[in-house]
Nucleic acid binder design. Structure first.
Lengths: 118, 118
DNA sequence: CGGTATCCGAGAGGATACTG
DNA sequence: CAGTATCCTCTCGGATACCG
């Protein structure tokens, strides 16, 4: 089962972020990245405050930081219209879309195994 | 593509941890969970200090905490032998093994897309 | 050996105010 | 509208010392 792991994912003593898994985690991990991914997968194009409105609990700063990171990671595209008032549109790149199967798989596993005890 | 998402994964305003994805992330996320998962997938049964030795950078406390959480989450089994000196063996449960495909997928994506620029 | 208890530092994320 | 700046809090993980 763990064919890929052995070679490249978790060499002894290597930092998590230098592994394939860790790299993926750095991109979709964190509290909001995948929620943003979700909304962008649903709507194709969204503006800043539109995202903010849909992800009620996120702060401006965090949303801003997340989008910037996701843009740097190449999974989100930012299109700015130089006008007053400003208008910026966010959308998923192809790379961003290629993550959706993983997210779906994690959703499935979570749904299947989530415990409601407590 | 996002069939599953809409219904159960990211309802508006719901905490990440209450979503399927978030639940999965809470189980394999963090700095060490999946590394432990990796070692247990490779060795079937491992003792506490054996894990500690293989994951050099982890502290006793963190390893202890991670194992406890993973046990509580039902993905790791802990077998204690009441003897002196103590002996405890850790192994993956079936549930734990069912996570391996996701980890592999994340490894694959990470390997494929990891950038070395900077 | 296999832990727990305690304390600590770094970094993620939040609240609010301000800007082009 | 779409942010940035500042400050603050809170959790994760690390270090060390002690226990059964």
């Amino acid at each position: 089962m763990q064919s890929k792991w052995n070679k490249t994912c978790v060499p002894n003593g290597v930092a998590l972020k230098d592994t394939g898994f860790g790299y993926t985690l750095s991109i979709i991990g964190g509290k909001y990245k995948m929620i943003i991914l979700y909304w962008l997968s649903e709507n194709d194009v969204m503006r800043f405050n539109e995202l903010k409105r849909n992800i009620a609990s996120i702060s401006y700063k965090t949303l801003s930081v997340m989008l910037k990171e996701m843009e740097a990671d190449g999974i989100v595209e930012r299109k700015e219209y130089p006008q007053i008032p400003p208008k910026v549109e966010y959308s998923l790149t192809e790379l961003g879309r290629s993550l959706l199967p993983i997210l779906n798989m994690m959703c499935d596993w979570g749904e299947l195994n989530q415990k409601v005890d407590v």
